[in-house]
Design a protein around this nucleic acid. Sequence first.
RNA 1: CGGGCCGUAGCGCAGUUUGGCUAGCGCGCUUGGUUCGGGUCCAAGAAGUCGGGGGUUCGAAUCCCCCCGGCCCGACCA
Length: 574
Amino acid sequence: MRRSQMLLPTLREDPKDAEITSHILMMRAGIIRKLDAGLYTFLPLGHRVLLKVIQIIREEMNRAGAQELLPPILIPASLWRESGRYEVMGKEMMRLQDRHENDMVLGPTHEEVFTHIVRENVQSYRDLPLNLYQINTKFRDEIRPRYGVMRCREFIMKDAYSFDLDEAGLEKNYQAMREAYRRIFARCGLEVIPVEADTGNMGGSNSEEFMVPSSVGEETIVHCHSCGYVANVERAEAKRELSSSSEEMLALEEIATPNVRTIEELVDFLGVSPQRFIKSLVYRTEHEIVMVLIRGDFMVNETKLKHVLNCIELEPATEEEVFQVTGAPIGFVSPVNLKKKIRIIADESVIGMRNAISGANKKDYHLKNMNPMRDFTWDRVADIHQVQEGEKCPRCSQSLKSYKGIEVGHIFKLGYKYTQAMNVRVLDKNGQSIPPIMGCYGIGVGRTIASVIEQNHDEHGIIWPMSIAPFHGIVIPVNMSDPAVVKAAEAIYTTLSARFEILLDDRDERPGVKFKDADLIGVPIRITVGKSFTEEGKVEFKLRRSEDKHLVALDDVEKFFEAWYEKEMAPYRV
RNA sequence: CGGGCCGUAGCGCAGUUUGGCUAGCGCGCUUGGUUCGGGUCCAAGAAGUCGGGGGUUCGAAUCCCCCCGGCCCGACCA
């Protein structure tokens, strides 16, 4: 490709609305352009990268025995009503009507569609197992699109859905996908960590997210140096020492706490440590209003709580709702003397507490010497606490640490949710009609690319791994008005282009401009035709990732390029 | 949805407080010259509904009202 003919608008300055490195560099290097909030065009340079990543994914999925197909992304609402998700998905799902006023959906995920495809075309155990995938556009109307292609409203995703006769088959498919993902990310030059994850509302036993450790990640990962335990904080557990206190129970006592509401304020006001408090929170779900109790120094993990409550929506109750239930304004709430009977969920941490402090269900008052069982009871005890750094590893009791990560892939066992809801049946060997068991496996393609840039850049720009670089090499004639230089560059370009992807920077620009651009767009191998060519007939080879330079005679260019290409490609062949 | 900041040429911004001539600067773009190993230099030029609508005024990018859009933070700790 000739640079002079390519739509490759590089920017000298950082775009003002780009916050993170990958977003800034993708804009500056002419990889993407924004069309609207969360909507991006992949320009020709970016498209080349995109196709390479897609190709790697495709090869590895095929290698793992999955089959690619291409369903529509415009989906009739009826399929979503069958699974029950039409109502559940909320505003994140793009909805529209066709000319006949039929409700339609732009697919945010494709469980229903793939389940339907299997339902229509599979009748017997002989047709299973199946692992079907697509590399296709997804729509999610995110509350807040962010960070360029990292979180956007329309994006490309590889999603696969496996169908098996039994759990053993699912396990096999799951492990095959796990291995495929490991290979895919390795080939893309991306370091990822598989992390135990929450399964969402799908239930199921296993779920892992492939995380790229990064300060700009939106997920929090909890890990243990000592034994290697790693989990998404949504799911993470900790070994808690909640030995019950043997303090003598004292008489319940009301204390005036004018305008003191938060645990933090109470700690200051009363001079008592936060472990002495019971935090009483009131939540609303789609089914009910509930009270949740947890020790004052812990935080509630809403993902865990959702599982316990078996609900999809979970929000803090409004001021009025809290008042109706407790008779007190927010800040003075407790499980003692509730005005209205509601379910109470207690975290494990409150059961053994003695002489605790919590609200009095009365404005400007709290209660002290509150004791579980004596003063209040609960409907259920559960672990609903959010693990914090410094807590103990659930396996080895060492201190847990946390860091941020970008979720680039997610694999999990779905179970029977969709095949049952949508009445998929196959006959097993005994002629019994049974629903297949499903797994699903996703990779965010744009997010993978952005993550590669987060991991591979310097102050000058992107440093592409050879495997997904938009070009293998760039040829820079230093002076376009020197016919000998131009002629040599053209010859190199023509020769190499027969076997490699080469960009020829044939613009009539100063050398500095070309070097800066070459660094910015991150092409792995650079060949400069300039001073050394004029003086001694040699061209200069340089790797983007290193400062070393090598002079090479014209006749040896192809051989040399091949050697460097192979060397640069080697780490990504797995 | 709440809070904060912002919207002026393709990009980055100044000008708005205190209304005033023809709306500026840098980059980029076009033309001519110059230069040629790390974003040359010189000259000339094209390019703007000042986010939109309404109002106040002799006069509005600037003041007032309404609307739209964007970015950031938050939307669990009572």
